[in-house]
Amino acid sequence: MRETVVIVLAAVGLAFSLSGAVGIVRMPDLYTRLQCSGKTITMGAVPALAALAVGEGPLSNYGARALLVALLLLVLSPVAAHALARAAYKVGVPMWSGAAGDEVAARRRPAPGSPAGGPGR
């Protein structure tokens, strides 16, 4: 039974890692690639680390370290992706021309007939 759970978790991690890697190659701009890399890290590595913890036991040296790394990945991966996307946006990395829209820039633009600074600026 334990081996079956390990195999299923490892297969789930492999499938998400493969789909994330394909997405990184195929996506058109940095912002969509960040989404794919976040999925690869979170949903690819965490099941693989859980498979290690189940296979070795959560209280073993390997299992405890795998669970600690999985917890850190779950916390730090979204923070890192957000920081990278925010830095790229502030530097002016362009979005894909087929993107739905830039809501941040739309909020910063003053509406016709309103003062240039807008409220709170």
Rank of each mutant, 00 (worst) to 15 (best):
K39P: 02
A10F: 12
D102I: 06
L74K: 03
S19Q: 01
P110V: 02
G63K: 05
V46Y: 08
T42N: 12
R2H: 03
A80P: 07
A116R: 06
V91I: 09
V6F: 08
G92R: 08
L72D: 00
R107K: 11
P119S: 09
S37N: 05
L49R: 04
T4N: 00
G13L: 10
L59Y: 06
R86P: 09
I24N: 03
M43V: 14
M1K: 06
T42I: 13
L67A: 03
L71Y: 07
V91S: 01
S17I: 05
T4F: 05
A81C: 14
G120T: 08
N61G: 09
L59W: 12
A10P: 01
T40L: 15
S19F: 09
R109I: 00
V104K: 08
R26I: 01
R108W: 04
A105V: 04
M1S: 12
T42H: 07
V69C: 01
L34R: 08
R2T: 13
R107G: 05
G20A: 15
T42M: 12
R65F: 04
T32F: 05
R26L: 14
L9I: 01
A70E: 11
V75A: 14
N61D: 03
A51L: 03
K90H: 12
K39R: 12
A70L: 12
A70I: 11
V8K: 03
V6P: 01
V6H: 11
T42C: 07
F16L: 06
A100P: 01
E103A: 07
L30K: 07
S114D: 11
A106Y: 00
A80I: 12
A15M: 03
M27Y: 13
V5C: 04
A21G: 09
P58H: 04
A81W: 05
L67G: 04
Q35R: 07
E56R: 08
L9M: 04
Y62V: 15
A45W: 08
T42Q: 07
A100Q: 09
T42V: 14
E56F: 14
D102V: 02
S97R: 10
G117I: 06
C36Q: 15
S60T: 15
V8T: 13
A81V: 15
A50Q: 05
A106D: 12
G98I: 00
P112N: 07
G92N: 06
P119C: 07
L49G: 01
Y89E: 05
P110F: 02
R109Y: 01
L52M: 14
V69Y: 02
L84E: 03
G92E: 11
L84A: 10
L30H: 10
G117M: 10
V5F: 10
A116M: 03
